[in-house]
Nucleic acid binder design. Structure first.
Length: 967
RNA sequence: GCCGGUGUGGUGAAAUGGCAGACACAAGGGACUUAAAAUCCCUUGGCCAGUGAUGGCCGUGUGGGUUCGAGUCCCACCACCGGCACCA
């Protein structure tokens, strides 16, 4: 406990108002179609008592969203409330401006820590999770945020994840149609001719169902199995056998995005590549849309850039190289490469295949066989970490085979090397050492020839390793020449030639890979999938008779809830923990549940949609709620009452999607890319009405410790919000989080700074209250039981200086300057300068002998979004003494500033001579430019600088400044 | 290496191309007090001159440029932070 005197009784005020807001559900947001109770402040403000308004009859929506937290055992740290405070201020500001504000909160509650704790202690992760949620909720509520808690959700709630599973099935049951460029149900899938059913009965089975024809119809069964395979190969959620990132320490696979420098993002454990059967989501089908639609949303450039880089679109060409002296009787054995620089084809002096490339086996010569085998063995054993760390030196071996360069017929050696990645492009490259840094290093290392084919624009530039555009040279073959052409034209010409000859074609490649979507975990959403196993012929020993395929569970069986377990570890055979629940796993003879679970990202991919209609048992969100809150409903029919509702509403159409989404940069590529992908699939399938989920997105900057270092337990510089709240209160805490600096900047915490804003709130308090009554209050407090202390606040009276009196013009000017600046700053998310503006107001108002109620009340409305508890308390005092407004400020209309009140009768104009300030002159506001010039030249302190010089030019900026240029 | 961001007092920071440092913190001085806390008032970018009011010069990472005028725009560079990184 601090020895300093409390600035004002926040310890009583804050709980009082938090309880009051809870009791009246002050911040409950109303959906179209709900019947509105007469006594709710929103309903009263908008005159909707007892009505059941449609979307068009409700005020325009404002959806302001925080990235929901993972409720860890450690509780909140000061970084969390930074974004939450910013969004809360905006939520309150927009309520005051007359919007229907949706401001929800929930829990991203699946995750590893609760599961690891379960492995150690046997405590069910749900218990751990619930306890953590309770802590987070208590802490968040103590900050006085205006969330609509009636929409609270947790991703671990079966009533929530039944819809996560349902959305997974939407992906499972659709395919991406390249002709319409969107996801479609399987009913639109056209099968290849050989899979057409011989009789119409079978075709009615159509896209889905997976029902097998009866025994005995072997050919139909085979056909249906092949049709099923074809469908399975097209699904947006599909099973793949490809190498995955396996983290032995975590006992699970990870998505590419979760692997950083060969280590797991969570925990930093080594990751190795290992082939496993896994669920994948076909996000690559959406690469182009995910890229292009970035142009339609209001995100920061850096964030968009990160997504663009992650998607990694690159235009180039695929080129086929024939194998020379092919030993194998395979006609047309070719190596296909991807290159962004087809213009350098004449400089290709060797080729490289990824070690995993399937042609390696077929082309390697006998003499090289052992070396190649050893090298491949060596690379597969290396973890990604080693592969990255040892990247300084290039390695590789010659296969003994040669390819023919299609442009000049030259024989070039084929190597394998792990600097070529199997997963990008075609897994093979043509190496142009003169004009590619990596090829250059490799060629130098192994003494391979380096041939210049691009002339740099500046002849002084070394051509070795020159990778930029220039002019093609040494590029003439028997059939094609591009010598002398600038790079872009050279690319065009050679690509056209390759295409005409059937040797290659223009191609676009993406770095983005499909999303590895399954995890070997307990604490995640189970897949709503079963596997069918069996033999076509009972007791057959013929493997060809064995079948195994996956099938969706029907919607009625959702949610699929994880089974009870005693032990949360993987099985000794390395199967996921769910496989321990034998009874749960076995649905019926030959029908078994999928035992993988979904990654943590699944639940966060769509939670912003569930908030719109969080208790809907019939669907994941109702159409009417979705179109209203995502902004597509009202746009069609803008009602006249919208303009009537509030003069402050100037927007014509609502924003498509979430109006503002605030969260940390750590989700720049993971969560934000995945959520956009799911949203686009739902959009294609007609379940949502906007192509993008988050219209405007802002990343709050990291808050560092007092030592300027990242906060961490090991550094011992972690600030616990509970401690700050205890000493300074929630309002001071909120204010400080915003006063530190611009929202998006990285900034160090400084508890002394909290004291500064705390003192400001104390000055606001003293601006209103009578000091004598405060002394009485403090004395009474020491002798009163804790339970009754809240009522003591009534002992505090307003200062006698607060009067129902007309405001002077100076007071109005001070107030309206403040209204103007705070409004503009809030619109621009400049919370720090808005607060300093209010400080200026208070510093001036402290000196007023008479404090007009009307002025003070308008100021409280400005303060309310920032320091809601204090503002409400003082507002209530004004109300009971002067009957000036409703009991809650939360829906009091935002004040409008009157420009007429800000007009100055005189201006102080700085006068410069040659750009240096020399004097300031006071002139009438309506002075003409010519008169201003005369006055400036005559200014006493300007005169000496003009003596003996000629005035060459006088710049007069009306109402602003005069600058005299002399020589 | 590539992409993005940021460099302003002792500190956090502010400034539609037009008075650099608003608002705070810290520091120093004063008032009140038996004393302290709290509160209130004053000073506070650097250097120089003056007893003084005051005046002058310098000053927004570095070097150039555009402009009557640059923290702000352009070019080159340096440092720090974040992201990506053998993606052909």
């Amino acid at each position: 406990m601090s020895s300093t005197r409390r600035q004002y009784p926040f310890h009583l005020i804050e709980p009082k108002w938090q309880a009051a807001w809870d009791a009246t559900q002050t911040f409950r947001a109303w959906n179209p179609g709900e019947t509105l109770p007469a006594d709710h402040p929103f309903v009263q403000r908008h005159g909707l008592a007892g009505r059941t308004p449609s979307a068009a009859e409700l005020p325009p929506k404002y959806y302001v969203l925080d990235m929901f937290p993972y409720p860890s055992g450690a509780g909140l740290h000061v970084g969390h409330p930074e974004g939450y405070t910013a969004t809360d201020i905006l939520a309150r500001y927009h309520r005051a401006k007359g919007f229907n504000v949706l401001h929800p909160m929930g829990w991203d509650a699946f995750g590893l820590p609760a599961e690891q704790y379960a492995v150690k202690t046997g405590q069910h992760p749900r218990k751990t999770t619930e306890a953590n949620i309770a802590t987070f909720k208590r802490q968040i509520k103590s900050l006085g945020f205006s969330y609509d808690w009636s929409r609270e959700l947790a991703t671990t709630d079966p009533e929530y994840f039944r819809w996560t599973q349902w959305i997974f099935l939407q992906l499972y049951n659709s395919w991406f149609n390249p002709e319409t460029n969107k996801a479609e149900p399987f009913s639109t899938l056209k099968y290849p001719a050989e899979l057409h059913p011989p009789h119409p009965a079978l075709s009615s089975i159509g896209g889905e169902g997976g029902r097998r024809p009866g025994e005995g119809e072997v050919s139909d069964a085979d056909l249906e199995a092949r049709r099923r395979d074809y469908r399975d190969s097209k699904r947006l959620a599909y099973v793949s056998e490809a190498p995955v990132n396996w983290c032995p320490e975590l006992g699970t696979v990870l998505a590419n995005e979760e692997v950083i420098d060969g280590k797991s993002e969570v925990g930093g454990f080594p990751v190795v590549r290992r082939p496993m059967r896994q669920w994948m989501l076909r996000i690559t089908a959406y690469a182009e849309k995910l890229l292009n639609d970035l142009d339609t949303i209001d995100w920061s450039d850096s964030l968009k850039e990160m997504q663009r880089n992650w998607i990694g679109r690159s235009e180039g060409a695929e080129v086929d190289f024939a194998i020379a002296d092919c030993r194998l009787p395979i006609a047309d054995l070719k190596i296909r490469v991807f290159t962004t620089r087809p213009d350098t084809l004449f400089g290709a002096t060797y080729m490289v295949l990824a070690p995993e490339h399937r042609l390696v086996d077929e082309i390697t010569t006998e003499e090289q066989w052992q070396a190649v085998e050893d090298y491949r063995e060596h690379t597969t054993r290396k973890s990604d970490l080693e592969r990255t760390e040892l990247a300084k030196e290039k390695t590789g071996v010659f296969t003994g085979a040669y390819a023919i360069n299609p442009v000049n017929g030259e024989r070039i050696p084929i190597w394998i090397a792990d600097y070529v990645l199997i997963s990008y492009g075609t897994g093979a490259i043509m190496a142009v050492p003169a004009h590619d840094t990596r090829d250059f290093e490799f060629a130098t290392q192994f003494s391979l020839p380096i041939v210049q084919v691009v002339q740099p624009p500046d002849p002084k530039t070394d051509w070795r390793g020159f990778v930029d555009d220039g002019t093609a040279m040494n590029s003439t073959g028997p059939e094609i020449s591009i010598t002398g052409l600038p790079t872009p034209e050279a690319k065009q010409k050679i690509a056209a030639w390759l295409e005409a000859k059937g040797l290659g074609k223009k191609t676009i490649n993406y770095k983005l890979r499909d999303w590895l979507f399954s995890r070997q975990r307990y604490w995640g959403e189970p897949f709503p999938i079963v596997w069918r196993k069996g033999w076509h012929t009972p007791n057959s020993l013929n493997l060809a008779d064995y079948y195994e395929f996956h099938e969706a569970l029907p919607d009625e069986e959702l949610p699929v809830v994880p089974p009870q377990l005693d032990d949360y570890k993987p099985t000794p055979e390395g199967l996921p923990p769910l496989a321990r629940a034998m009874e749960w796993t076995k649905v019926s003879e030959g029908v078994y549940r999928e035992t993988n679970t979904m990654p943590q990202w699944a639940g966060s991919c769509w939670y912003y949609l569930r908030y719109l209609d969080a208790r809907n048992a019939e669907s994941f969100v109702s159409k009417s709620a979705e179109t209203y809150w995502m902004g597509s409903a009202v746009a069609a029919n803008v009602s006249p009452r919208q303009t009537e509702a509030s003069h402050a509403l100037t927007r014509t159409a609502p924003r498509p999607g979430v109006d503002l989404y605030v969260g940390g940069t750590e989700h720049a590529v993971l969560h934000l890319l995945y959520a956009r992908f799911w949203h686009k699939v739902l959009y294609d399938l007609g379940h949502v009405s906007t192509p993008e989920p988050f219209f405007k997105l802002v990343n709050q900057g990291l808050i560092l410790g007092e030592d300027g270092q990242k906060m961490s337990k090991s550094r011992g510089n972690v600030i616990n919000p509970d401690d700050i709240l205890k000493e300074y209160g929630a309002d001071a805490f909120r204010l400080y989080e915003m006063f530190m600096g611009p929202l998006e900047m990285v900034k160090p915490w400084n508890t002394k700074g909290v004291e500064g804003v705390y003192r400001f709130l104390g000055r606001v308090w003293r601006l209103f209250v009578d000091e004598k009554s405060e002394v009485e209050f403090e004395q009474a407090e020491t002798t009163t039981e804790a339970a009754e202390r809240g009522e003591l606040l009534d002992l505090i009276r307003l200062s006698p200086a607060v009067k129902r009196a007309p405001a002077t013009s100076a007071q109005l000017k001070t107030l309206h300057a403040c209204i103007k600046k705070v409004t503009e700053d809030l619109d621009g998310l400049r919370f720090n300068t808005a607060i300093s503006t209010m400080m200026v107001f208070v510093n001036e108002a402290m000196a007023w002998e008479t404090k007009p109620v009307s002025v003070l009340r308008e100021f409280l409305i400005l303060l309310q979004p920032f320091a809601p508890h204090l503002a409400e308390e003082l507002g209530a005092k004004l109300d009971s003494a002067f009957a000036v407004g409703r009991s809650s400020l939360a829906y009091a209309p935002w004040p409008q500033f009157d420009p007429a009140l800000l007009v100055e009768s005189t201006l102080e104009i700085p006068v410069q001579v040659n750009g240096k300030l020399r004097d300031k002159i006071v002139v009438p506001a309506d002075i003409s430019p010519a008169e201003l010039e005369q006055a400036a030249l005559a200014a006493p302190k300007v005169q000496p600088f003009l003596a003996g010089k000629t005035v060459k030019k006088v710049i007069v900026v009306s109402r602003k400044l005069v600058n005299v240029a002399v020589g």
